[in-house]
Design a protein around this nucleic acid. Structure first.
Lengths: 205, 205
DNA sequence: ATTTACATACATTCATGTTTGTATATAAAA
DNA sequence: TTTTATATACAAACATGAATGTATGTAAAT
């Protein structure tokens, strides 16, 4: 059996992405060979080179599958004006993202790969820039939300929304990194929600 | 000229470490070959294999050169009881570390390599565990300092030293990461001291 | 009949570790 | 103090094993 139907081909493409994620996670992106990925997906390198021009393109495809959904979720939680106060919205955004990471294996693994199983040089340097841009977006949205909180008088005095947003962003960046690195004993994973709660309540009047 | 004096040999060893740092930074650890490093140091692979058993050992040597001094600095700033209040000590510890990173090229480059130019798999997984342990130590020392601040009545009410320490640690982890990743336009580098100041003043009564 | 979706075979490059060679520094012996 | 032996600090050559990309083959879908 050689030639598959269109749907079957699309399926092996997806299987290749899944296989790549597994192998990347175990061996790191650099040490992973196209052969490894093909074997893990139960095909030969021919299949890989048919669907993707090279390993880098496979990495890109894997990455794009998880990044877009997460951004959508952020927009939902943060910007949509709801019944809860802005500070609670930020808290729920942070907690929700962590919760999502706990539940969604694919996203979690992809993040782990991007954070500690990938070297950001050459082709991957561009990815770094994308990440930085993404951060700028998050910071701006969080800042806006803190701004609203200030107007509503929810913040401590002399608190600058821009600085608060930065502080929150750095806190969350750190949390994500430690959360991912600490996969073995999971101290950060247990504490995550409490830490987020404490972080926000520091800002409350 | 083949056989060098003992001091000359030690010098080429150091040159190899320096060369490795440069090449790791440019090409990432995985894509760096022993040949690259040798060429950058102006020797042949023979010299590398004489001083180090392989690339991993070279990486380890490079890493150890910068990590130990930083830990010493932490102990000095944080634990030694001084004239300033505990919160200021934490602030100065954070600012001092960032300052040190700005000034010391070697340390900065090594951190950049460890954070975004290295894949933590196999032999390097052990390094991850070391980093985690290091973090635990920092958190504990910061917690103790917050504890003293609380006793002296410097903290906001209902502030838990343990949670504050975690929050500070995550903030600082995030700052380090963004600081390193943002090497191009340096938004974080300019703001670093202000951000640290704001972070600490959130805790003040 | 012609693509498609792969498998298989091929050619080439590259990196590694080891081995061998060698000039010299250094220490011991005379 | 000079001579001699040995270990040192590499360079150069060798052997081997990947890994990559491409080219070709092929059976089934369209």
């Amino acid at each position: 059996m050689v030639r598959k139907t269109k749907e079957a081909a699309e399926l092996t493409r997806q299987q290749l992405i899944d296989a790549a994620r597994q192998v990347f996670l175990q061996r790191g992106v650099s040490r992973t060979t196209v052969e490894h990925i093909a074997a893990a997906a139960g095909v030969t390198r021919g299949a890989v080179y048919w669907h993707f021009s090279n390993k880098t393109e496979l990495f890109r495809a894997m990455r794009e599958q998880v990044l877009l959904p997460l951004i959508d979720h952020m927009d939902d939680t943060l910007l949509v004006e709801g019944p809860e106060d802005p500070l609670t919205r930020i808290e729920r955004f942070l907690s929700g993202t962590m919760q999502f990471l706990s539940e969604d294996l694919t996203t979690r693994q992809t993040y782990e790969i991007m954070m500690i199983k990938c070297e950001y040089v050459d082709e991957f340097a561009e990815v770094l820039r994308q990440i930085l841009q993404n951060c700028t977006g998050i910071i701006e949205k969080v800042r806006l939300t803190y701004e609203r909180a200030k107007i509503k008088g929810l913040l401590r005095d002399h608190a600058d929304p821009a600085q608060l947003a930065m502080d929150t962003h750095l806190f969350f960046t750190g949390l994500l990194h430690m959360w991912v690195k600490d996969s073995e004993n999971g101290i950060y994973r247990q504490q995550a929600h409490e830490l987020i709660k404490a972080h926000i309540s520091l800002r409350r009047r």
